[in-house]
Every structure is written in C-alpha cells, then in structure tokens.
Amino acid sequence: MPGTRIAALGHHQPSRVMTNADLAQLVETDDAWIRQRTGIVTRKIAEQDESVTDMAASAGGKALAASGLAPEDIGLVIVATCSAMDRCPSVAAQVAARLQVPGAVCFDLNNGCAGFTTALASAAHTLKAGAARHALIIGAEKMSDVTDWTDRSTCVLLGDGAGAALISTTTSEHEGIGPVVWGSDPQRGASVRLQGAWQPRFAQDGQAVYRWATSELPAIAQDACTRAGISTRDLAAVVTHQANLRIIEALTRRLDLCDSAVIAKDVVESGNTSAASVPLALSKLIERDEVPSGAPVLLFSFGGGLSWAGQVVTCP
C-alpha cells in the first residue's frame, strides 16, 4: 500500500478580536481570572453572516493553493465540525462546490474536539486503500453560535476558526502520517456536551475534563509515538487540542520532551476552537517557520465523547 503525507496546510480566522476585557462587559469576570484558569488572552469571533462553510472554504482553498494541485485532483473532502448548522448538503459538499472540486466524496465528521485528527486518520486509511490519491481535510468551527454567553466557566474559552490539510499518497518508504491511536470513553461522554435540537449550547464539567486529560491522556499520546517508531524526545513539536493552556502544560510536562520541542499554545490568542484547533495551530506554526520541514510532529486531540485521536506526522 502507498504511504501518505501532509502536502500543505492553510487556516482562516475571523477578523474580530474579543479580549478578556470585552468579556468582562458580558459576564462577571476579569482578565486576571481568565488568564489564571485558562491562559487565554484573546479569541476570534466570526460575524453573524460568516458561517462554518465560509471559514472552511477559506482554509481549504489556502491549503489547495499551497499544494499546487488542481481541484480535479482531489478525491475526498472531509470537514470535521460539531458547530455547523447545515445538515444537507454537508459543509464538505459546499466547500467542494466553492473550490470547484468535481466528483469527490464529501462528508462531515463530528467527533467533537477530536474531529480533525479522527478525519485525518480516516482519510489516510482511505488513501492507503487506493480509493483516492489526494484528500482535503478541514476542521472548522463557529463556537460562538453555540456559546452560552451567561456562563463564565465556558464563554471565556471558545473561539471561531478553521484549519485545513491537503494530504496525498506517496511512494516513499517513509510514512508521513503515522498510525493513529484513537478511542473513546462514552460512559463519561456527558462531561463535554453540545446537545439540543434548537440553539444547542456548549457545556462541560471542566474539573472532570481536566483530571481526565492530565491523568489518562499522556500515556495515550506516548503510545502514538511508540506506534510511529519514535521517542517523545525525537519530536520537534507537539500540537494538542487547544482546550486550555493549563491542560496543555500539564499534559506535555508528562511526555518527556526535549528542551527544543515546540509546544503549540495558539489557545492564548485564539481560544478553544474545538475541531479546528489542531490544524489551525499547526498551520500557524509552519507559517512562522517554527518547525522545520521533515520534522516529526505529534498531533493529539481530545474532547467531547469523551474521545481522542492522535498520530505523529512529518512536517510538510
């Protein structure tokens, strides 16, 4: 079977910046309270007429352009999202139409905050099976549509945005997208919720999520490296779900990383963008040349479900 690799990345963020001071006008909170508990300073909020599809198409278009491929080369489009209001046609199908991708298989995938890495693994498996040669994988969220702006424990966390990866098959013996480690603990799924037929609102048991993420997930992240045949000390960067800076710091401390490893902390300026957070953070690291081409990077996301998915990839 052929190998797979990430060929190009792209991202999109709304222009509107919401600061902690802005949030203090909406709910009883302040900058110090938010920074101490979450590490977040700003987040990007989409305008009312900017949809998940708009952001996904923008990020996907940038990844497609950076890859040098033509729209007709793409055989699969997956959009990972839990906040899209459109059900049919899928966001993926709408993105394909906007980017003039003809005839691709298009579908949305909802695995909460673990959606992008789940979609990335699913696409890699599809390409290895020979069903397509190139795939466009996008994580896109408009979490501001599902935010309870009266709940200071959650509204301070969330932001909007999209990140995309163009993945391709390769004849190289080197595997650019490593084996996935994924799973779920549905018995504790209610710890992160986005439920309701009309105007659903994001809610979570923050303490339960923190304990789970910091105590149980490091070993799973370690397993992703083991399956890829490398040590955590070989990693050039780690891009986890940008849930909360305190979770990121606690989780990565337990991975025995080398001092030079870059740890993505995009949550500070972008907030928690759910399924968009990993590709958004990765794309920005590469745009700033913080990770060299060819270097191993651990992608690891987790959240609603409770679910997780992670793999080591080669930086494009």
Results as ranks from 00 to 15, higher is better:
residue 303 G to Q: 12
residue 259 D to F: 04
residue 287 E to H: 04
residue 133 R to Y: 00
residue 76 L to P: 04
residue 304 G to L: 06
residue 119 A to Q: 02
residue 93 A to N: 05
residue 189 G to I: 01
residue 240 T to N: 15
residue 168 S to F: 06
residue 259 D to E: 15
residue 24 A to N: 13
residue 26 L to N: 00
residue 73 D to H: 06
residue 48 Q to F: 07
residue 177 I to W: 01
residue 15 S to A: 15
residue 106 C to T: 13
residue 280 L to W: 00
residue 225 C to A: 07
residue 264 A to N: 00
residue 73 D to V: 00
residue 154 T to Q: 00
residue 267 V to I: 14
residue 293 S to C: 14
residue 170 T to R: 01
residue 305 G to Y: 00
residue 169 T to F: 08
residue 140 A to W: 02
residue 242 Q to F: 09
residue 145 D to K: 09
residue 231 S to D: 12
residue 3 G to E: 02
residue 140 A to I: 06
residue 61 G to C: 05
residue 103 G to I: 09
residue 30 D to Y: 05
residue 292 P to L: 10
residue 87 R to G: 11
residue 160 D to P: 01
residue 214 T to E: 07
residue 147 T to E: 11
residue 282 L to Y: 04
residue 19 T to D: 08
residue 9 L to T: 15
residue 7 A to V: 12
residue 175 E to C: 07
residue 45 I to F: 08
residue 234 D to C: 11
residue 107 F to M: 02
residue 93 A to C: 12
residue 124 A to H: 03
residue 263 I to K: 10
residue 152 R to T: 13
residue 7 A to S: 12
residue 190 A to C: 13
residue 41 V to L: 14
residue 292 P to Q: 13
residue 150 T to L: 05
residue 221 A to N: 05
residue 87 R to D: 11
residue 107 F to T: 00
residue 151 D to Y: 09
residue 198 W to F: 14
residue 102 P to L: 07
residue 20 N to S: 04
residue 195 Q to E: 13
residue 240 T to Y: 13
residue 289 D to V: 02
residue 94 Q to I: 07
residue 303 G to S: 12
residue 13 Q to G: 08
residue 39 G to S: 06
residue 149 W to I: 08
residue 289 D to E: 09
residue 169 T to L: 03
residue 35 R to S: 08
residue 147 T to K: 10
residue 246 R to D: 08
residue 218 P to T: 07
residue 82 C to M: 15
residue 28 E to W: 07
residue 4 T to N: 01
